[in-house]
Simulated scan of single mutants.
Amino acid sequence: MWWVCWWESVGVSYQPSSTVSESGVRPLSRPQLSEARRVRAVELFEQGCSTSEIAAMVGVHAESVRRWRRAWENGGAQALRRRPAPGARPKLDDAQVEEVRAALERGAQAYGFEADLWTLERVGLVIERVTGVTLSRATVWRVLTGRLGWSLQRPERRAAERDESEIARWIAHEWPRIKKGR
């Protein structure tokens, strides 16, 4: 894994999981890693390295290095920096998302709902109460899964009369008897 050695040589750490490392530092995202490659390429441009050498050191195709070199020659190192993602700005900023997280962690009953169960409609109402911003169901889903990191949880459907010991007894004694009778 040549890229691990290269990243360590330039002081960049990469962890594929999205968890925080032991040092308390979040791992670099894919766009940050790509930018680190381009920054390293700029350093190598300035040292006079050839396109093929840079491509091998950075781990990209030579055509990418040629494209980076043209951008660098026309706009300097700033031309190779990361740009913000295109599109509309999120309706909720990071502080509002944290307010929503705190509100949701209090539970649904804290907001007057009968059961402590979150639905998209309920979460949308809480977001509106907490932030004053009305979101569609799809946007509420994106906030929950993307920005908060929550996932869909469905309650198991089981009969209230279910007797686990009787089920275990049936599996241990009755099922083998039935199976033998075939």
Rank of each mutant, 00 (worst) to 15 (best):
I54G: 04
E166G: 07
S21E: 09
A55F: 00
R83V: 07
W7V: 01
A79E: 02
R137L: 15
I171P: 00
L104F: 04
V143Y: 03
R154T: 14
P176Y: 10
A160E: 07
R158P: 05
E128L: 11
K91D: 13
V60L: 02
R101I: 00
A172R: 12
E121R: 15
L152W: 10
Q32H: 03
L104R: 00
Q15W: 15
A77I: 11
R38L: 02
T145S: 02
Y111Q: 04
T51R: 02
A79Q: 02
R70N: 04
R81V: 02
C49R: 13
E164Y: 15
H61I: 11
V123D: 01
S52M: 02
R177H: 09
E161I: 12
G87D: 02
G107Q: 05
W2M: 03
I171H: 12
R101C: 03
E73D: 03
S50D: 15
E8F: 08
R122P: 12
Y14L: 08
G24I: 07
R66Q: 13
R158Y: 12
G48R: 03
W141Y: 15
S17A: 10
R182Y: 13
E63T: 14
S23K: 13
L33A: 11
Q109E: 15
F45R: 03
R30M: 09
E53G: 00
A56M: 06
W72M: 01
E73Q: 09
P84Q: 04
L117F: 11
A88Y: 04
W2P: 09
R157L: 09
V140F: 08
S17N: 14
R137V: 14
V133I: 14
K91S: 15
A79F: 01
N74T: 14
T134A: 12
E121L: 12
L117K: 08
R158V: 15
P86E: 09
E46C: 01
N74I: 05
L144R: 03
P176E: 10
E22G: 04
M1V: 12
G59V: 05
W118I: 07
E53C: 01
L44V: 10
W150A: 11
A55K: 01
A55W: 00
A108C: 09
A115I: 06
W141M: 08
G146T: 05
E166Q: 14
S136D: 03
A160G: 02
V4C: 05
K91I: 06
E156P: 09
V133C: 09
R83C: 04
A138D: 01
